[in-house]
């Protein structure tokens, strides 16, 4: 080794040390907050541990078997997917429509942008309380309006058939603005001269313009919005906790609420671990789809 290489090697070593030093706090926290908890969670799922109890035993796959035969858990899973099935098309279609219409506005664009984005910034718990009041059978303005129109009262939150769709409606209310902003970003990345060329080529009305230019070119954005919306909807918790607490008759039991109850209310820690792992599996599936979708984004 030549003498001139020595200071260079020393500098490289120093750089490695600084790099490691800079990354160390983050690395330790990553271990403490993600890696270790995940391992603990996996371990717990094979025990009968309950918080506060000193001893535990290995029970193998018992918890898993219990979870998959548990009527309550299965219902919460079905309810969650039902919720996603309403919120997903509702918020995606609505926000796409709003985005396309808002995008063409010039003077009123920021006016609509502000209004539709408002729910995203507001505290959902507080707004859920307000919604609860709005939907109140006798005091709520919505039922008052329905009465006036001659429809009679609708027990939005106390009818088991209506409770979950009502929560989903609030979910849509919260997500439309967020998705709209994502779609607007996608729309502004479509070159304007494509619209101009199509106008000259005879693409005259809005429906044609949407079908020939907007929709195909917005495809990647749409897939992406679908995935993020699915994940967000799958994590529904706040409205359930405030407005229905899983009721009426378990109609709004959702997966996160079930995990919360098992883990932090009944303190059946081991069982809650299993539910958490099931929850994680779903989220990872969505995320894998998301990565796949992101790869496809560069496709044109």
């Amino acid at each position: 080794m030549s003498a001139a290489a020595l200071p260079f090697r020393r500098q490289l070593l120093w750089q490695k040390l600084t790099g490691a030093g800079f990354a160390l706090p983050a690395f330790l926290l990553l271990l403490a907050l993600h890696v270790v908890p995940l391992l603990v969670l996996a371990g717990l799922s094979f025990t009968d541990y309950e918080l506060g109890v000193v001893t535990f035993e290995w029970v193998g796959l018992d918890n898993y078997a219990q979870a998959f035969s548990d009527e309550v858990f299965r219902r919460s899973l079905v309810n969650t997917l039902y919720y996603v099935a309403i919120v997903l098309p509702g918020s995606v279609i609505l926000s796409l429509l709003v985005a396309v219409l808002v995008h063409q506005r010039k003077r009123t664009r920021s006016f609509y942008e502000i209004i539709y984005f408002l729910p995203v910034t507001s505290t959902l718990i507080a707004m859920a309380t307000v919604w609860q009041f709005l939907l109140h059978p006798s005091l709520g303005v919505i039922n008052a309006a329905l009465r006036k129109l001659g429809f009679g009262e609708v027990p939005f939150l106390s009818d088991p058939d209506l409770a979950l769709p009502t929560l989903a409606m609030i979910g849509i209310w919260q997500l439309v603005g967020f998705n709209m902003i994502l779609f607007l970003a996608g729309l502004s990345s479509i070159p304007r001269d494509l619209y101009e060329a199509s106008a000259i080529d005879g693409v005259g009305n809005g429906v044609d313009r949407f079908l020939t230019i907007t929709w195909p070119l917005l495809g990647p954005t749409t897939l992406f919005v679908i995935v993020t919306t699915s994940i967000t909807a799958f994590k529904v918790f706040d409205t359930v906790a405030v407005m229905t607490k899983g009721g009426p008759q378990g109609a709004t039991e959702v997966i996160l609420y079930a995990i919360y109850l098992e883990g932090f209310y009944y303190f059946r820690t081991a069982y809650a671990s299993v539910l958490t792992l099931v929850f994680l599996t779903f989220v990872v599936i969505f995320s894998v789809i998301q990565t796949f979708v992101l790869d496809r984004r560069t496709h044109y």
Binding site: L30, L44, L280, V284
Partner: peptide
């Protein structure tokens, strides 16, 4: 790689062990 993996883990997953 760990950072990328952790990106898709929501808080509700490590909540139980951290609480303990």
């Amino acid at each position: 790689v760990l950072v990328l993996l952790a990106l898709c883990i929501p808080i509700q997953v490590p909540a139980l062990p951290i609480y303990m």
